[in-house]
Design a protein around this nucleic acid. Sequence first.
DNA 1: CAAGCTGCATGAAACGATTCAGAAGGGGGT
DNA 2: ACCCCCTTCTGAATCGTTTCATGCAGCTTG
Lengths: 340, 340
Amino acid sequence: MSAASIKEVARHAGVSLGTVSNVLNRPNRVAPATRQRVLDAIAELGYVRNDSARQLRAGHSRTIAIVVLDVANPFFTDVVRGAEQVVEEAGAMLVVCNSGEDRARERRHLELLEEQRVRGVLITPVGHGGQPDLERLHNRGIPVVLVDRESGRASCCSVAVDDVLGGRLAMEHLLERGHRHVAYLGGPFTIPQVADRHAGAAAALAAHGDTSELRVAPTDTLTVSAGRRAAAELVALPAAQRPTAVFCANDLIALGVLQELTTRGLRVPDDVAIVGYDDIEFAGAAAVPLSSVRQPREQLGRTAAQLLLEEAEAGATHRHRHVVFQPELVVRHSSDQARR
Amino acid sequence: MSAASIKEVARHAGVSLGTVSNVLNRPNRVAPATRQRVLDAIAELGYVRNDSARQLRAGHSRTIAIVVLDVANPFFTDVVRGAEQVVEEAGAMLVVCNSGEDRARERRHLELLEEQRVRGVLITPVGHGGQPDLERLHNRGIPVVLVDRESGRASCCSVAVDDVLGGRLAMEHLLERGHRHVAYLGGPFTIPQVADRHAGAAAALAAHGDTSELRVAPTDTLTVSAGRRAAAELVALPAAQRPTAVFCANDLIALGVLQELTTRGLRVPDDVAIVGYDDIEFAGAAAVPLSSVRQPREQLGRTAAQLLLEEAEAGATHRHRHVVFQPELVVRHSSDQARR
DNA sequence: CAAGCTGCATGAAACGATTCAGAAGGGGGT
DNA sequence: ACCCCCTTCTGAATCGTTTCATGCAGCTTG
């Protein structure tokens, strides 16, 4: 029952405080016989280090936090798994926080993390990431790595995927298949990915030297149900105005669209082609296997964690880095048919 | 840069340590004018509470941990979201740890959490949950709530879903549709859910008073790819021996099975019917919308968190409770056809 | 044999917040 | 004028660890 402290261990083993601490932290400084005596006492009392005290002394914890936009989104769960690998290898602990794309919750989390003096923060910020919150952390000496955001010249490392390129790849593919009337589904546009993927698609269309239009159907979140709602609106359009293909800002939206279109009697890809984004595990398992833009999700997490640990080690000598990965288009049945 | 302490705030505001602490913790004990002066000093210095110190004094943290078998499994992400709601309402913080169904990792996490003196632990333990690790936590005075496990008479609360019933519902449904040759896919059987769902299915079959056999095809994990592999083996069987329906221990397996069967040219539900378990969001969006046994996932998380907070408040006066939810069968196209 | 090492062990001094007994000052009641 | 109470503020003690200057043997070495 309850908390045996280092002091009681010391008394039990007949040594001083410092010696117990040494057994714990630099065992080779302690004579084998003494060490054993202390270890026995520890076992007997069921002593467990008090991390608060240790942290208090050290000035910071051995915890690293990752703040994601949505814990239930497979994209982020994979990023988390990647980060986890690296963090645990380093003997630290990863805590996962969920901002739910809500700025207030994000701020609340960051405040708590700051109070806990976490060793560093991996974050996909709500919005652009130019937040003063992040600046504050940095000023406090807490390294921050932006995940899936480019930090520009900002005061932290970043790991991102070239979303403009991803949008371009998707659009070029659709153009090649003969689609001229394409809709872009996703939102909110305050999320840089949503905006970048759109920009890439728009650029591809422009480069194609065509007067065709990229219809934009903004959604309020990146979820399956948002996709269903957006698709319902498309179906309601007169057939002549209805796009022949949709490019979705992520796979959840795309799955929602697929579901709704099918329910409403439209065939994919015959009536409407679909390209998603993220290539989550379920994309290939969907009603119609989904074309999608694949991102190296776990690697994103791993790299982010590595950069963070590096910065935490290096301290002032650290130079910020910006890693950008290339996405890759995976064509499946949902868009694999020439138009007309 | 760096850490203004409460002492510096005090000096800056021309008051004593204790007063600053009072402003932080019992503002109404402090005269308005003084309070304002302190708040100004706090703002000016950018002071942020040091939680380690606070914890050290308090003896425990305000953090609650949830240890799940797989962060990427939609079942758990929903449980996490439920727990999150409750925990955040209580002003605490939820940290998510991933055991990955690995006992060693689970133990490592629990050790770290114990060192951190977390306020409580929600856990879906690897295996049955009779672990000495959990016993230890409990002895230390750290409340533990089992999630999706029944604790028997054990020394903690638990929140579970009646998996035997779930298995029974699924099997009765298949029998009703005329299936006599059914396979159960899932594993490892060391996971109680896997065993319970099987037990329920087997019981239903026995009750049906039939000599038919419940073929068991064990898998090593509960993932999409394990489902694909298991399905590949079924397909390899001579047609006469091949089951006409499969009941899967979870939806990920079911999706894998669906994918593989379709790829190999078998039609669902015509050639083989499928029933999954969990009713994850993607179940309805699958190639053939998946019948599945639905569990109240978020509510599981919410209830677990509530029980935990209750126990943390109540202390010794607390009486352990065991909540069991009822699952519900959702019939979709993948099994909605009478046999023959 | 003195001087200098080396290897071990010691215990006081932080770290930063909370708490609590008590001091100081200001009314109000008698 | 006196006493008591109440509000407001004070500062020392405490939580459990790590670290560091110091002490103390027992050796080697010249």
